[in-house]
C-alpha cells in the first residue's frame, strides 16, 4: 500500500510537470491562433512576439493558458491528448486498420522477437566459445565491444542496403539490426555466468573425471541461468530499440518507427508521442514477461532468491 502511494505520487508529479511544460512550449502557437481569431494579444503581431521569452508571454496573456493543452498540432501535446490518441488508435480502431497502433506495434514486435531470438542464440553461442577457447576469448570479445560503440543509427542504413542488395527484405533486416543490439548483453552476461562456478566446483568435477561437455551441461549452464535472465531483460529492451531504429531509414510504411517518422514529417506530435508511449508500454510488457519466465524457471530449479 505504501509503495503504491509512492508510485502514484511520482506519476502525479511527472504529469503535473508535463502539463506545466506544455504552457511555455505551446504559448506562441496558441497566441498566433488566438490573434487570427480576433482576440487581443499583448504584444500584437507574431513578428513582435518572435524574440520574446515564453514565460513573459504567458504572464501577459494568461487567458491563453487552457488553450495550450488543446492545440491540434502542439509542440508538446498534453498528457490527456496523448492518452486520447492512444485510446482511439488502439481500442477504437480495428486491428486491421492502417491507423491502428496495435497493428503497427505488432509489426515492430515481430521484428523485435525475431531479432531477440537471433541475438540471444548468437550471444549464447559466442559466450560458450569465449569460455571454452582462449583464442575466441582474445579475438571475439574486443570485436563484440567495438560493435557496440558504433552508433546504430549510422549502421542501420548500411545493414539494410547490404541486405537489400542480396535480396533480403521485409522483417529480416530489421531483425538483424535488433539482433545486433541484443546479442551483446547476452554475451557479457553468459560469459560471466558460465565462469561463475568456483574452483572447488570445477575440482569436484575433475575428481569424477567428468568431460568438458558434462561440465558444461551439468555445472556451467545451470549456474549461468540467473546471469542469463538479467541479460535477457536488457537484451529484449535493446531489441525493441533496434527494431524501431531499423524502421527509420527504410521509409517503412508500417511499424512504430514508421509512425514516429510519419509523425515528424507531418508535424503530428500527438502521433509521435502516442507511438513513443506504445513503444514504452511494449518494452515494459516484454521485460515483465521475461521476468515472469525468470521467476518460474528459477523457482523450478530451486534457485529462487
Amino acid at each position: 500500500m505504501k509503495s503504491l502511494i509512492a508510485v502514484l505520487t511520482v506519476v502525479g508529479v511527472l504529469v503535473v510537470i508535463w502539463y506545466a511544460a506544455c504552457v511555455p512550449m505551446n504559448i506562441k502557437g496558441v497566441l498566433t491562433e488566438a490573434e487570427r481569431a480576433g482576440a487581443v494579444v499583448v504584444p500584437e503581431g507574431a513578428r513582435e512576439r518572435r524574440n520574446l521569452g515564453a514565460f513573459g508571454l504567458v504572464a501577459g496573456n494568461s487567458f491563453a493558458i487552457p488553450a495550450t493543452w488543446s492545440q491540434k498540432r502542439p509542440r508538446l501535446p498534453a498528457p490527456h491528448q496523448v492518452a486520447i490518441e492512444l485510446w482511439q488508435t488502439t481500442v477504437m480502431k480495428k486491428i486491421t486498420s492502417k491507423r491502428s497502433l496495435v497493428h503497427h506495434a505488432w509489426i515492430t514486435l515481430s521484428a523485435t522477437l525475431l531479432g531477440f531470438g537471433i541475438g540471444t542464440g548468437l550471444g549464447i553461442l559466442l559466450a560458450v566459445g569465449v569460455v571454452h577457447s582462449r583464442v575466441m576469448d582474445m579475438s571475439v570479445m574486443p570485436w563484440a565491444i567495438v560493435s557496440q560503440t558504433i552508433p546504430i543509427i549510422a549502421l542501420a542504413p548500411m545493414i539494410i542496403v547490404v541486405l537489400y542488395s542480396i535480396g533480403v527484405q521485409g522483417v529480416l533486416p530489421k531483425a538483424v539490426i535488433s539482433a545486433y543490439l541484443s546479442f551483446f548483453p547476452v554475451v557479457v552476461g553468459m560469459v560471466k555466468g558460465l565462469r561463475s562456478p568456483d574452483m572447488m566446483q570445477l575440482d569436484l568435477l575433475a575428481t569424477y573425471h567428468a568431460s568438458k561437455p558434462q561440465g558444461f551441461w551439468k555445472l556451467r549452464l545451470p549456474a549461468s541461468m540467473p546471469y542469463l535472465f538479467t541479460s535477457l531483460k536488457i537484451g529484449i529492451a535493446a531489441s525493441l530499440v533496434g527494431a524501431i531504429v531499423g524502421e527509420l531509414p527504410t521509409g517503412a510504411v508500417a511499424g512504430l518507427g514508421a509512425r514516429l517518422l510519419a509523425g515528424s514529417y507531418y508535424g503530428q506530435t500527438v502521433q509521435i508521442w502516442s507511438a513513443l508511449f506504445m513503444a514504452a508500454i511494449l518494452a515494459a510488457c516484454l521485460v515483465g514477461l521475461v521476468e515472469v519466465i525468470e521467476r518460474v524457471t528459477l523457482k523450478r530449479m530451486g534457485m529462487a532468491a
Binding site: 572447488m200 575440482d203 569436484l204 549456474a223 541461468m225 530449479m301 530451486g302
Partner: peptide, 9 residues
Amino acid sequence: FQAAGLYPW
C-alpha cells in the same frame, strides 16, 4: 571439500 559444494539447483 571443506564446503559441501552442493548444487543449489
